[in-house]
Amino acid sequence: DAPDEFRDPLMDTLMTDPVRLPSGTIMDRSIILRHLLNSPTDPFNRQTLTESMLEPVPELKEQIQAWMR
Protein backbone atom coordinates (compact mmCIF):
# COMPACT_ATOMS: atom_id res chain seq x y z
CA ASP A 1 0.00 0.00 0.00
CA ALA A 2 1.05 3.56 -0.65
CA PRO A 3 2.31 5.65 2.28
CA ASP A 4 -0.37 7.90 3.78
CA GLU A 5 1.34 11.07 2.56
CA PHE A 6 0.96 9.79 -1.04
CA ARG A 7 -2.80 9.23 -0.66
CA ASP A 8 -5.54 11.76 -1.35
CA PRO A 9 -7.22 12.63 1.98
CA LEU A 10 -10.71 12.80 0.47
CA MET A 11 -10.77 9.66 -1.71
CA ASP A 12 -7.88 7.70 -0.10
CA THR A 13 -6.39 6.95 -3.53
CA LEU A 14 -2.80 7.33 -4.72
CA MET A 15 -2.18 10.90 -5.89
CA THR A 16 -0.65 11.40 -9.34
CA ASP A 17 -0.66 15.23 -9.45
CA PRO A 18 -0.57 16.59 -5.88
CA VAL A 19 -1.56 20.21 -5.26
CA ARG A 20 -1.58 22.25 -2.04
CA LEU A 21 -4.76 24.08 -1.09
CA PRO A 22 -4.48 27.48 0.65
CA SER A 23 -5.41 25.67 3.89
CA GLY A 24 -2.22 23.60 3.54
CA THR A 25 -4.03 20.36 2.72
CA ILE A 26 -2.48 18.40 -0.17
CA MET A 27 -4.87 16.66 -2.58
CA ASP A 28 -4.78 15.11 -6.04
CA ARG A 29 -5.54 17.75 -8.70
CA SER A 30 -8.18 15.65 -10.49
CA ILE A 31 -10.12 15.04 -7.27
CA ILE A 32 -10.17 18.67 -6.11
CA LEU A 33 -11.10 19.84 -9.63
CA ARG A 34 -14.04 17.42 -9.62
CA HIS A 35 -15.10 18.80 -6.21
CA LEU A 36 -14.83 22.39 -7.48
CA LEU A 37 -17.33 21.63 -10.26
CA ASN A 38 -19.95 21.10 -7.55
CA SER A 39 -18.78 23.55 -4.91
CA PRO A 40 -16.15 26.32 -5.20
CA THR A 41 -14.93 25.66 -1.66
CA ASP A 42 -12.16 23.88 0.22
CA PRO A 43 -13.81 20.56 1.21
CA PHE A 44 -12.10 20.65 4.61
CA ASN A 45 -12.88 24.19 5.82
CA ARG A 46 -15.50 25.50 3.35
CA GLN A 47 -13.41 28.57 2.48
CA THR A 48 -13.75 29.88 -1.08
CA LEU A 49 -11.45 27.99 -3.44
CA THR A 50 -10.73 28.32 -7.16
CA GLU A 51 -8.47 26.34 -9.50
CA SER A 52 -6.01 29.26 -9.68
CA MET A 53 -5.45 28.95 -5.90
CA LEU A 54 -4.09 25.38 -6.21
CA GLU A 55 -0.31 25.17 -5.84
CA PRO A 56 1.59 22.26 -7.45
CA VAL A 57 3.80 20.16 -5.15
CA PRO A 58 6.48 18.90 -7.58
CA GLU A 59 8.75 17.39 -4.90
CA LEU A 60 5.92 15.17 -3.64
CA LYS A 61 4.97 14.26 -7.21
CA GLU A 62 8.57 13.11 -7.81
CA GLN A 63 8.54 11.03 -4.60
CA ILE A 64 5.28 9.34 -5.63
CA GLN A 65 6.63 8.59 -9.12
CA ALA A 66 9.82 7.11 -7.62
CA TRP A 67 7.75 4.96 -5.22
CA MET A 68 5.63 3.67 -8.13
CA ARG A 69 8.70 2.46 -10.09
Rank of each mutant, 00 (worst) to 15 (best):
E62G: 09
L14C: 08
V57P: 01
D17W: 06
P58A: 09
T25A: 13
P43L: 03
P58L: 10
T48V: 13
E62S: 12
P22F: 03
S39K: 07
M15W: 02
K61M: 09
Q63N: 07
D12M: 14
T50D: 14
L36M: 09
Q63S: 10
R29K: 13
L49Q: 00
P3A: 04
A66G: 08
L33W: 05
N38G: 11
D4P: 15
N38Y: 14
V57R: 03
D12L: 15
E62W: 12
D4T: 14
S52C: 10
D4S: 15
G24R: 03
L21A: 00
V57F: 08
D1C: 15
M27P: 01
S30R: 12
N45D: 10
S39T: 12
R7A: 03
E55D: 09
R20A: 05
T16L: 14
H35S: 05
L33C: 11
T25E: 09
R46V: 07
I32D: 01
L54M: 05
M53N: 06
M15G: 03
P3T: 05
P58K: 09
E51L: 11
L49W: 04
L14R: 02
L33K: 07
L54G: 00
L14E: 02
T50F: 11
V57T: 05
R29C: 08
P56M: 07
L10S: 05
R7K: 13
L14A: 03
L14Q: 04
E59A: 10
N45H: 08
M27C: 09
E55R: 12
D28Q: 06
P58S: 09
T25V: 15
R7W: 09
D42I: 04
T48M: 14
D42V: 01
F6R: 02
M68G: 06
R46Q: 15
R69K: 14
P56K: 06
G24A: 03
M53A: 07
S52T: 11
W67M: 04
N45V: 06
S39G: 07
E51Y: 10
P3K: 06
S39W: 08
P43E: 02
A66T: 11
L36W: 04
P9G: 08
L60E: 00
T25G: 06
I32W: 03
T48S: 13
F44W: 12
G24M: 05
P43Y: 04
L36R: 00
L21N: 00
P22N: 01
D17H: 06
P9L: 05
R7N: 05
P9D: 05
D4V: 15
D4C: 15
S30I: 12
S52L: 10
P40G: 11
L36S: 00
T25K: 14
M11V: 09
L37M: 14
K61E: 06
N38V: 14
N45A: 05
E62K: 13
L36G: 00
L37K: 14
T16D: 09
Q65M: 14
L33D: 05
V19M: 10
I26S: 01
R34A: 15
R34C: 13
A66Y: 09
M68D: 06
E5K: 13
R69A: 14
S30P: 12
R46N: 15
M11F: 12
L49P: 00
R7S: 04
D4R: 15
Q63T: 09
D12S: 12
P22E: 01
I64A: 00
S23T: 06
R29G: 04
T16N: 10
E51V: 13
D12T: 09
P40D: 11
L37H: 11
L36P: 00
D8F: 04
N45P: 01
T13P: 01
E59T: 10
L54R: 00
F44A: 04
R69S: 13
